[in-house]
Amino acid sequence: MENNIVEDVQNARDEKEYSAGSAKGEDKDKEPRIIAFVCNWCTYNGADLAGTSRMKYAENVRVIKLPCTGRIDPLFVVEAFKKGAKGVLVSGCHPGDCHYTSGNYHSRRKYTAFRDLLSYLGVDINRVEFSWISASEGNKWVSVINEFTNKIKLLPDNSDIFSKK
């Protein structure tokens, strides 16, 4: 797939204009954005179950699906903050239920240290939520999202070191 240089330049220009355009339209008092990193086997299915059961919850959440909580690098959380997310949820299978036997255990260890580090460096740890939600817990997904969204809405404006100024 060879591109000619004219096309490359045009593509680059398109990208730039597009991102400038979408950023411009943002309103200051817009709803806070929440990113949820979830595992494919438990929480994603739990969220789907909330859907098939027609439960209702806050619209703020955007789900990013990964195979396992073991894949959800804590540094993704920092990246999400940098890109303007006000809250980040990490969710996967309950202990003992991991599709890959131990991904959630490894992840739990990492997040234990990571959360302490974040908090120590002055990040409000209320902005990061961690939960175990199984494929049958559509109702838990709904309550975790709603409670977390409400909590995030009540937080003061971001001023910590990873927030976009």
């Binding site: 908090s119 120590y120 460096l121 002055g122 990040v123 409000d124 740890i125 001023s159 910590d160 070191i161």
Partner: peptide, 8 residues
């Protein structure tokens, strides 16, 4: 947490 943030 705000003060810690200021410090760091």
């Amino acid at each position: 947490v705000e003060d810690r943030n200021m410090f760091w």
